[in-house]
Write a protein that binds this DNA or RNA. Structure first.
Lengths: 179, 179
DNA sequence: CTTTAATTTCTGTAAAAACAGAAATAATGA
DNA sequence: TCATTATTTCTGTTTTTACAGAAATTAAAG
């Protein structure tokens, strides 16, 4: 029996599906993820179709998407020639994978474009200074943020967890940062 | 003359509009924001319509949206009875306003739902343990993250900037976190 | 190599979102 | 208060995205 038969599990799946549309995925992708996340065993595509009442092709695309995010992976079940799928259940890894992929899709292209515009603006003499300034500062700001992100992301999980637990207390280490 | 006449400014606006669709806004909203961001003077709705070739109603809704995010505000230009609008240009404040609003729209409802499910699952005895576990842990995880966010968000800007500049060096303050 | 099953890609349809224009409301000034 | 102008809300259309079903491809087993 699939987890989707339990009311709370189903409600989780449906909620996840709705929120998914606000998270840059579509309903089907998010529902498939939720189902796999709650399942304690690998599921094949056909089982997912039946559990969620989705077309086979739709599930196929959703699985491809989720694998693109790195939060679902194919696995093999012995004695079964079909592909099976499992979701990342370690929440920290899930979070890291999602942020990394969203940065790649949603931030990196903009930084690249702003860098390009900066180049071209340097040559264009009749461009108002404030336009050059604002685009330039936006580029710097986003670059700084992502540099910080890349650095922090490289820390080991236990360090990050400790930092999180400290919360605002990290400010103690900054001169004049005691608030 | 409006900034949208400069090729680099226009390209910025168009790019911002496209990316906006990946950032939870629609093209019009993001374009209006980009235009105001680059403008050095308040613009009225009609001027925005002409600059971006959008319908008046569309601009009206975009402005409402942007004010909802807290990144655009109405302002008054003396001798003109029309509303005028300006965008937040301080990038740090812009970033903070956007993250706060996205959290409110995209995270808080899910935490609330997970909390509710947790309650109900406690009573439901035939629910598989791993389902209860995973939903429960997801709730904890998201709560922990947002608590951390709320705390750090409360620090003053200068402290946050210092922390950002430190990057991975914050790990120095964590026992055994020197990587 | 051939047959069969599994998976993906393609194409048309359905659903959702964005948008324009019109109508209604609200605000300002005479 | 009335007339005028600005703004928002509503309604229908267009565009985009999601999705189902069919066709094509790929992979496995005999």
């Amino acid at each position: 029996m699939g987890v989707e038969k339990y009311p709370e599990a189903l409600e989780f799946i449906l909620h996840w599906g709705e929120m998914g549309t606000h998270w840059g995925a579509n309903r089907s992708v998010a529902q498939v993820h939720a189902l796999l996340f709650l399942s304690d065993k690998p599921l094949d595509a056909e089982a997912i179709c039946e559990a969620l009442d989705l077309a086979r092709s739709n599930v196929s695309n959703a699985l491809k998407d989720l694998q693109g995010y790195g939060i679902v992976r194919r696995t093999h079940v012995s004695g079964d020639r079909r592909d099976h799928f499992v979701a990342e259940t370690e929440l920290w890894d899930l979070f890291m994978a999602i942020t990394a992929e969203r940065k790649r899709r949603e931030i990196d292209p903009t930084i690249a474009k702003l860098g390009e515009l900066k180049q071209r603006m340097a040559a264009n003499k009749d461009l108002p200074a404030h336009v050059r300034d604002r685009i330039g500062r936006m580029h710097e700001f986003m670059s700084t943020l992502t540099t910080w992100y890349e650095q922090v992301r490289g820390l080991k999980k236990s360090t990050l967890v400790s930092l999180m637990k400290m919360g605002a207390k990290v400010a103690r280490f900054i001169p004049g940062g005691k608030d």
